[in-house]
Amino acid sequence: MAGKAIVVTSGKGGVGKTTTVANLGTGLALMGRRVCMVDADIGLRNLDVVMGLENRIVYDLVDVVEGHCKLRNALIKDKRVENLFLLPAAQTREKDAITPQQMKEICEVLKEEFDYVLIDSPAGIEHGFRNAIAGADEALVVTTPEVSAVRDADRIIGMLEAHELGAPKLIINRIRPDMVRRGDMMDIEDVIEILAITLIGVVPDDQDVIVATNKGEPVVFDRRTRSGQAYHNIVRRLEGEDVPLMQLDNDGLVERLRRLFNRDARRRKAQ
């Protein structure tokens, strides 16, 4: 059975694409799926570092394309999880070292072997982005609740639609419930209203992610962390399960009612 290729992209840099790929890849593999993560960020590879696999790289994506090795030789097996592999990017080359067509062919081959091919896209909308989406069947767009990130996500969604990768799904990363509550951060509804695509998950801002990333160990391993739980939920939604959004606030019903009332009052005042 052929798997599917999903590109994780954002437009803006630093919103958590690589962390998302690492966690979703690991999470899917933990559920018994065969997963290959492809780092399409040639020249600025990170996924190997986040996965703690940097020291195992011998061949990379560009070596495969240029015929220096077979595809299977470049795949690195994860050190913790069965069924999880990484196809690393070349660090000493640039984005134009491969073409969208070559990327597409590699994804086709990988899809025969794996249930999921997760592609980590570089930031930006240029050649590297076009490579990253070339072989994808679906797209996940990552944004943070900031105006600039949402604007770039909007641009990217438009470009995905132009490449017939319609109906991408949205991950809102690094949301801070306390700031949302004070009205200092866009809330989920604000973001959804602008981007108007399906939300597949919300990941709270969490120090554990930084700790885990620096250790080269995806946070999804530790489901006691809020972010780990959030990634696990996204994994289950990718698998077709219907998982309700995690309750981000620690507050109870009273607080939520108060907020609802406040919003209502704001609207009435505006009239």
Partner: peptide, 24 residues
């Protein structure tokens, strides 16, 4: 359709859009 950031319509005449015109 919705016009997203970076997309642009130029037209000689009137334009009716069933969708949003997003910032950008």
């Amino acid at each position: 359709r919705t016009l997203r950031s970076g997309q642009r319509v130029d037209y000689q005449g009137n334009v009716v859009i069933m969708g949003d015109v997003n910032a950008g």
